[in-house]
């Protein structure tokens, strides 16, 4: 589904990613962990097409397409979704209208008819329950004045409304209390299927108790220095990132 080959990217002259290799197949959940500044969020941003990053080397293939050549909107329309670490507040645009517009733009891209108001509301009501999102939240301006937990729940709600093929969750656990974390994880697990891929980017192991990954990768200095199964996350939790810093001088990329 997603194949990253020797990806080098950075901001202006500064290289942050130094040759990332990663393959995610349909049905898999991958977790990328790493200390602050290791390049986790840069990887998520480059994949989603955020401006300001330059890719100097490497290739990213997404469902047979060269991902890096697509505009951010076309990446989304092809089935990529980024749950933001810091969801943006958009005054004057209601969450409902925003999701409806996005959904119909994606449908249009695939040559499908737009959902009418009734069909959309029905779909929304059904999926709201899953994330315990209140109707009043959806009629408010997008993320404006939302609590940290509400913003993250809203991100996952957008994900299950738009039904992407690959979801990248960028530090979705940051700023969440344990109850909110459970709700968010429940939404993600609902989304999890044989057809979908998930890339969880996180600093802490905590989230992975709820969203159990098939593979865990450790990112350090812009490279994946260690890959393993979910036990790797536990080992990291126990020993801390220093264990990686001390043991990696020249490790083969996964």
């Amino acid at each position: 589904m997603l194949t990253i080959r020797n990806l080098h990217a950075g901001i202006e002259e500064r290289e942050i990613l130094n040759g990332i290799n990663l393959e995610i197949k349909a049905g898999e959940v991958h977790a990328i962990m790493g200390p602050n500044g290791s390049g986790k969020s840069t990887l998520a941003s480059v994949l989603a097409g955020r401006e300001g990053y330059t890719v100097s080397r490497g290739k990213v293939d997404f469902l047979g397409k060269n991902l890096l050549e697509l505009s951010p909107e076309d990446r989304a329309r092809e089935g990529l979704f980024l749950a933001f670490q810091y969801p943006v507040e958009i005054p004057g645009v209601s969450t409902t209208n925003f999701i409806k517009t996005a959904l119909n733009e994606i449908r249009k891209y695939h040559g499908e008819d737009p959902l009418d108001a009734v069909g959309f509301l029905k779909l929304m009501k059904e999926r709201m329950k899953l994330l315990q999102i209140d109707q009043s939240l959806l009629s408010r301006s997008l993320n404006e004045g939302f609590s940290g937990g509400e913003k993250k729940r809203n991100e996952i709600f957008q994900m299950i409304m738009l039904q992407p093929k690959l979801a990248i969750l960028d530090e979705t656990d940051s700023g969440l209390d344990i109850d909110a974390l459970r709700i968010v994880a429940q939404g993600v697990n609902q989304f999890r299927s044989k057809e979908n891929g998930i890339l969880v980017v996180t600093h802490y192991q905590r989230l992975l108790d709820y969203i159990v990954p098939d593979f865990v990768h450790v990112l350090y200095n812009g490279r994946i220095v260690k890959s393993g199964t979910k036990e790797l996350a536990l080992e990291l939790e126990e020993k801390g990132y220093d264990f990686i810093k001390n043991t990696t001088s020249e490790t083969e990329p996964a």
Partner: peptide, 26 residues
Amino acid sequence: ALFYLRSRGIGEKKAQSLLLHGFAAD
């Protein structure tokens, strides 16, 4: 904000008008 909207599949022009409309609407 523009990137946030585009990352959900909304085209650039439409994202811009949505944002401006939101700005004016209150």
